[in-house]
Structure formats: C-alpha cells, structure tokens
Design a protein around this nucleic acid. Structure first.
Lengths: 146, 146
DNA sequence: ATACGTGCAAAATGTTTGCGGCTCA
DNA sequence: TGAGCCGCAAACATTTTGCACGTAT
C-alpha cells in the first residue's frame, strides 16, 4: 500500500471549503495532531505546543478542537478517566481503530478488527439505528503488566 | 427466566462483607440505582433524590458512587458529552449491555449482543490483553429521528 | 477594510476534599 | 462509645465564554 495523503492536507482542504481562514494557532494544532498516532487530551496539546516555538492559548486549542470535531475531521475519545482525548479521523474510515487501556500502567494501546466493525454494523441495522460513529474501549492488563 | 435477585441485595451483601455500614444516604443512592434500567449521571442521582423524601448531599452521591465502582458493583459509562454516568453491574456479567446515543434527540438506547461480546474476547486474546471490562458506544440516528 | 482568528482572564461546569456533627453497630 | 457516615462549603480540574487586539484575505 502507498503512503496515505497526510491528514493535514485533507483537513486543510475541508476547512478551506467551509470558508475557514488559515490562522497560525489552528495550523499549529492541526500539525501537532497529524504527528500523533493516537489520541491526545486538550492539556497535552496545549503543553506540547507551549514547549514548541508556536505558543497557542488554551482557548484556541479548545476552539480548534471543536471545529474539527464538528467537521468530522477529529474524533472524540473518552477512556474512562473523565478527560476527553482527540485523534484524527481519515476519510472513508481508513485507519479506524479502537483502544485498550491498561488498568495497571494506564498505557493506551490501539487496535483494529474488521470483524468487530462488521458486528457493530449488523447490530446497528438490527436495532434500526443509522450509525454515524462508534467507540470501543477495553480495560484490563496489558502484556507487560500481566 | 425467573426474576433476578435485586441488585440491591447483591450490593448490600458485598458492602457488608467489606465492612461498610449501612447509612441512610448510601441506602438511598443504592435503591435509586436499582430502580434504573440504564445509566444515570451524578447530577441526575442528586436531583432525583432531592425530589424524594430523603435528601442526599452531592458529596455523598459521589462518595457512594466511588465505593460502588471500586467494588465492581457499579459501572462507569462515558457517552461522549463529558458527563460520567453509572449503572448497575450484575455478577457474572448478567444483563450486560452497551449503549446507542441518538445524535439528534440524545436518547439513550441500551442493547445486547452475544456475538459482539465474543468478538471482543477474541480481540483481547489476540492482543495478549487480560480484559477486565469493556464499553461500546454507538452514535447516530435512532428510529424515531431517521 | 473587515470579518475571522487569537490570547488572556473570568466564568461555568463537573468532581473532590476538609471538617464538624450525626448515626449505626 | 467510637468508627464510619453525612452534608455543607470550599477547593479543584476541565472546558467555555467575553472582550480587545491581531491578521489573513
């Protein structure tokens, strides 16, 4: 398989189409998110940006997150600790994954499973629901902590 | 199928074994939770108790929730709106269900599926994870809003 | 030029904690 | 009687909002 087009490009195009301007703060948040494999909390985003050259205020972080979630470019993930985390959403469900959280070391492990997706689609159909998104979280011991 | 023993009895026995006393506030919270089919937020618990004869303070609601979650009697559910909700957990996974949230009317619809449970167990095994609990949330349009 | 973007600080919301008084065992 | 239980209010943590200023188009 070839390298997927960077999510940044996808997001920027979508934002442009929706009439958003390209400000420095938003660009910094988007670039940071594109560098992550998995979910990041608002606090983590703010901290990592503070550590870099481009300082971005908390309000901007939250506002950008909001826009991206509304546009379907970012997915919100809640792992059970009361802190919302966010991660890229690719077009057509590419790279879609779920999360395992270790109850001992709190490590976050992403995983994919096509049969799981199939079963969820089937359940939604059976219940008469038009599914727009879904989230699966497993909790337990990771291999290192067993 | 026969009527399952009330969760209240199960919870009280477990609490007694752990050396907890039976206070009026805790009893009220437990009774209220046992009357619910699905998850309730701390705010909802407090409000419903305030409306009844037994007023219970916010702190007690949270403290009781904490104890019950720690003992595995209560499950924490996060549905994507940043508010934690809680629901009874029965022994041996009886009555175990997941949630669908309507993106239009915010209605909460519980559902069960044995194949889903099987797939999740298989995924955990494949990844070398010892699963302790899991949570599945679907979002989309419910039949009434389609 | 002007509407959108940004940062700061204040406010709102959800949750936890300190502490004095009450109650069950 | 005394260890836990309770409620109030203050403290906390996360997220949202108001406002003045900056910047892209």
């Amino acid at each position: 398989m070839s390298t997927a087009p960077p999510w940044t490009a996808f997001a920027n195009e979508r934002l442009a189409n929706e009439g958003f301007r390209r400000g420095g703060g938003r660009a910094a948040v988007i670039d940071l998110l594109d560098a992550q494999e998995c979910a990041l909390s608002a606090q983590e985003i703010e901290d990592q940006l503070k550590a870099g050259t481009r300082k971005v205020g908390r309000a901007t972080v939250y506002r950008v997150i909001d826009e991206l979630v509304d546009l379907g470019l970012l997915g919100r993930v809640e792992l059970g600790d009361g802190i919302a985390r966010f991660e890229r959403v690719f077009p057509e469900g590419a790279h879609h994954h779920h999360h395992f959280v270790c109850s001992n070391c709190e490590k976050l492990v992403p995983f994919e499973d096509e049969e799981l997706e199939r079963v969820l689609r089937r359940v939604a159909r059976r219940e008469g629901l038009v599914m727009e998104s879904h989230e699966v979280t497993l909790r337990g011991r990771c291999p290192d902590c067993s």
